[in-house]
Amino acid sequence: MLGRHGNNLFWMARYLERSENIARQIQAALHHALSREDEGEEEWASIITSGGSRKIFDKKYDTLSTTNVINFLLRDRDNINSVASLMSKARQNGRSVRTSLTQEVWLSLNESWITCEAALKTPVNIHDLPVILDGIIKGSSLFRGALYGTMLHNDIFNFLRLGTFIERADNTIRIVETKYHRLLPTAKVIGGSEDQSQWEVMLRSLAAWRSFNWLKKGRLDPLGVADFLIFDEQMPRSINFCYKMVRYNLEDLSNFYGRDYKSLGMAREICLKLTNDRAKNIQIINLRDFITKHIAKNSQLSLTIATDFNLN
């Protein structure tokens, strides 16, 4: 496979995952905003902050109103991480590697892009929001389904999955980062229903609200949430789960190509560290430090994958 194609596949998957994550975060914040009396400015602010685009936002908009934020996150072309920008880039990458995709995978991508372009052509108001967000998330699910159901599970598949899980790990880490102060053991003392709703937003934006309730019998304590989002081995968006998948896919590639890779060593190390950390009492982990290190490790891993496989 061409190194450039590997790169296109990896980034196509990253962009798609990112746009799905943004849609989920908006969905959760919207749910939060609609369940209270003010506009829920703080939630909107935290989505923009966790996506790293606060500066661009402040340059263009005066207030963190719902309309400003959703338009910025969904359709602003000046925001390289808006859903519209990401979908265009994902499709561009997809077009570059059409020969590596089955017709069904390509169709799901192209159709999502067509739907997205049409839905985001004019400013979005809150009335259309649920349908648009559902559309984005469904498009992503369709893509995943086509991928699993029709593609050969070979190196092409592995590069796509690597992109997905590197991006997903990054997303979960950043969500935890923006809200880590609410996950600290001391947060419990502050308590109150207000903080509970914060944890709910966090879980909802990772599609994990129901599974958390199911596993933890609805006991919404901050350490339980932190443990779940970081260490849970079954939750497909926990940091632990994402790295397990990164490791799997790198092992696959290593077997497929018959070589050993530096990135595989890194992924193994991260997984081992997570297992060790989990064994400790979560109360003694310095959450702030833990998160900062993981953001750095994740981007280092992404770069190493690119070097190992000539992704250029």
Binding site: M1, L2, G3, R4, G6, D155, F159, Y257, R259, F309, N310, L311, N312
Partner: peptide, 19 residues
């Protein structure tokens, strides 16, 4: 392939791959 995927090595045309 695109031009940037090709290189000439010992007079042969090569493509840059993941391996």
């Amino acid at each position: 392939v695109q031009g940037s995927d090709l290189e000439i090595c010992d007079g042969r045309v090569m493509i840059r791959t993941t391996t």
